[in-house]
Computed example of a mutant assay.
Amino acid sequence: MGAYLYLALAIAAEVTATVSLKLSDGFSRLGPSIFVVIGYGVAFFALARVLKLGLPIGVAYAVWAAAGVALVAIVGVLFLKEPFNLAMAAGLVLVIGGVVLIEVGSSQ
Results as ranks from 00 to 15, higher is better:
A13I: 09
R49Y: 02
I74H: 02
V77M: 05
V19F: 04
I34L: 15
F35L: 15
G91P: 04
F27I: 10
L80N: 08
G58T: 01
P32G: 13
F45R: 11
V93H: 04
N85Q: 06
I34T: 14
F45T: 03
L86C: 05
G98S: 08
A13N: 09
S20T: 06
A48Y: 08
V99I: 00
I38M: 11
A89R: 02
F84L: 15
D25H: 14
L71Y: 01
L92T: 14
V50Q: 01
L86H: 14
L94Y: 09
T18A: 11
V95M: 12
A60I: 01
G54Y: 15
G76P: 10
L55Y: 04
G76T: 09
A70E: 02
M88H: 13
S24F: 02
L92D: 12
L55D: 04
G91F: 14
L71Q: 03
F35A: 15
E82W: 13
A60N: 01
N85L: 05
D25Q: 14
G76F: 06
G68E: 00
A89I: 15
L53T: 00
G97R: 09
G58K: 00
L21V: 07
S28K: 12
V36L: 05
L92I: 15
L71F: 13
L51R: 07
L78P: 04
G54E: 06
G68R: 02
V42S: 05
A67T: 04
V72A: 07
V93T: 06
K52A: 15
F27T: 13
L30E: 09
V59K: 00
V42D: 04
L47T: 05
I96P: 00
I38V: 15
F35H: 13
G91H: 07
V19S: 01
V72R: 14
S20Q: 04
I74R: 12
A12G: 10
G76D: 14
L94N: 06
L47F: 11
L21M: 14
T18F: 03
L47P: 11
T18M: 08
Y61D: 06
A17D: 11
G39A: 04
A90G: 12
G26T: 02
Y40K: 07
L78S: 03
